[in-house]
């Protein structure tokens, strides 16, 4: 390590890896899916939980961004009304390409419990935005959201900068198992040797 590049013209010890440009770029993109802080209803609570220390989207490189200009991913967390739809569309237009959309929960997918009898709720944000991943649930558990993010990473990996964008959406199976935390529920425990 200390010798590497210490003398001019000495390239011994340096390592090379061969790949294609798309794979290299996608490797960076899928590990830095910054998502927009955008939550419109109770799914936002689960989104916060997923970003919290227990599920921790940061370990996937998913960091919340407060401005759409720095975000790659829009997670539609919650009910979208007709009035909010135009605002959400404006935020999406402000994001830089390539941009991704995850529809989280029944409301953003299809209007949810409001779809049939409400005058104000939009029946699915996919009428205005190209949704990449649908996550069912009301609201989905953090495990389901993580599952959706992994499916999105798979899609980002297949992205070709000069090719045709894959527009067929992915629908996550609704099996989001409850975490197994022992008989008495979740108990935070101290590490061994610290009392």
């Amino acid at each position: 390590m200390a010798e590497c590049g210490s003398k001019a013209g000495n390239r011994d010890g340096e390592q090379l890896a061969l790949t294609c440009v798309d794979d290299f770029l996608n490797w960076g993109k899928e590990n830095s899916l910054f998502y927009l802080l955008f939550a419109t209803a109770c799914c936002g609570i689960e989104l916060m939980q997923t970003g919290g220390p227990r599920f921790d989207t940061d370990r996937l490189g998913m960091i919340p961004r407060p401005t759409p200009r720095q975000a790659d991913l829009m997670i539609l967390a919650g009910t979208i009304t007709h009035k909010m739809a135009s605002r959400a569309h404006l935020l999406w237009k402000q994001m830089a390409e390539p941009r991704w959309v995850v529809s989280m929960g029944s409301c953003a997918n299809a209007g949810g419990p409001f779809s049939k009898y409400s005058y104000s709720v939009l029946n699915g944000m996919d009428k205005f935005l190209p949704v990449d991943v649908y996550i069912p649930g009301c609201p989905p558990r953090p495990e389901a959201l993580i599952d959706g993010c992994m499916a999105l990473r798979e899609r980002v990996r297949r992205f070709r900068a000069l090719g045709i964008r894959d527009r067929d959406p992915v629908v996550i199976a609704s099996a989001s198992p409850a975490p197994v935390c022992g008989d008495q529920g979740f108990k935070p425990q101290r590490p061994e040797g610290q009392g």
Binding site: H82, S86, S115, Y117, Y119, K127
Partner: peptide, 23 residues
């Protein structure tokens, strides 16, 4: 109030109904 037919190009499911025509 009579529910509107469409808004922003989206068809609304209760077009032309009133509240008490519902469930």
């Amino acid at each position: 109030y009579v529910y509107p037919t469409r808004y922003n190009g989206v068809e609304l499911r209760r077009a032309g109904q009133r509240f008490e025509d519902g469930p």
